[in-house]
Write a protein that binds this DNA or RNA. Structure first.
Length: 274
DNA sequence: TTTACTGTTGCAGT
DNA sequence: AACTGCAACAGTAA
């Protein structure tokens, strides 16, 4: 489900729903979900209090005093809160956290790509450093000069470059297509061959579109819903994603879909030329 | 029935 | 070093 706006929406929902609550029991029904060991995570978290909800890029962080549980939702991961201890049966529920007020926090993941990791709070910084994550897409953190330098130095096609989380965190396959359309950049353009004005637009549109996505509660295109079961509305602002054959909002040329670095890619063949 | 596709990432290859 | 392809998995649509 998640690109940055969806993860941030989940974070905000959980912040209201679970911060301050203590974990009274843990059950992991799909142990491979927990990279750092399911038994250890279950044993360590009984009695722990959820002190905060944070996020870095697409990684969701449960702050638990001196520890942190990192959740990556990958394609289909979801967090649900049931107000009662009894949870309906569902073959895609893989982790259950009983909370002190009688509610149950459940992790659901149809494709089982998502991961949970339990770290000491001191290991958090190096964890993200190792993944070579770029800056958050907000003014003050996402500087233009380093972005331009890195873009010009690479011969990668710009779309996979923006997706690799090193230039900036948070873009996934939907938002990157929207940013490329708004910036009038073809997804297969080589990074090093982009004009300064195009790089400038990519920088500005990345921040604008991801922030808009957050304001709209994320995009619901397949199965994404927030922790309250609500749809996001960002999909109504999409200009190209899943719009194959429909007229471009700028020039009315039919939107095309091609494959770039293995990902379905939507663009306007008239506005976005190499 | 088979095949291709899917808001992701990391690893093994070249 | 940097880039590509593919695997992890399950469901849906053609």
């Amino acid at each position: 489900m998640p690109e940055l706006p969806e993860v941030e929406t989940v974070r905000r929902g959980l912040e209201r729903l679970v911060v301050g609550k203590t974990i009274t029991a843990v059950e992991i029904s799909y142990p491979r979900l927990v990279v750092t060991g399911a038994d250890q995570l279950a044993a360590d978290l009984v009695g722990a209090t959820i002190t905060g909800m944070a996020r870095r890029g697409k990684y969701l962080i449960f702050e638990l005093g001196d520890r942190a549980m990192i959740s990556h939702l990958r394609m289909e991961g979801k967090w649900l809160l049931f107000p009662q201890a009894e949870v309906p049966a569902n073959k895609h529920f893989h982790a259950f956290f009983d909370l002190s007020d009688g509610s149950t926090l459940v992790y659901q993941d149809v494709r089982k790509f998502g991961t949970l990791e339990l770290l000491g709070i001191a290991e958090l910084r190096s964890y993200f450093t190792k993944k070579k994550l770029g800056p958050e897409p907000v003014k003050g953190e996402f500087g233009y000069a380093p972005f331009e330098r890195a873009v010009r130095a690479s011969r990668k096609p710009i779309k996979p470059h923006l997706l690799d989380q090193s230039l900036v965190v948070g873009l996934g396959n939907i938002y990157v297509d929207e940013v490329l359309w708004a910036s009038r950049v073809h997804p297969e353009s080589l990074s090093s061959q982009l004009k300064p004005a195009q790089i400038k637009r990519l920088h500005a549109e990345t921040m604008r579109i991801l922030q808009l996505g957050i304001e709209k509660g994320g995009s619901t295109v397949r199965t994404y819903r927030n922790a309250l079961g609500e749809d996001g509305t960002m999909q109504t602002y999409h200009q190209v994603y899943a719009k194959t054959g429909q007229p471009c909002g700028r020039c009315a040329a039919p939107i095309e879909k091609i494959k770039v670095a293995g990902r379905g890619s939507h663009f306007c063949p008239n506005c976005q030329k190499i």
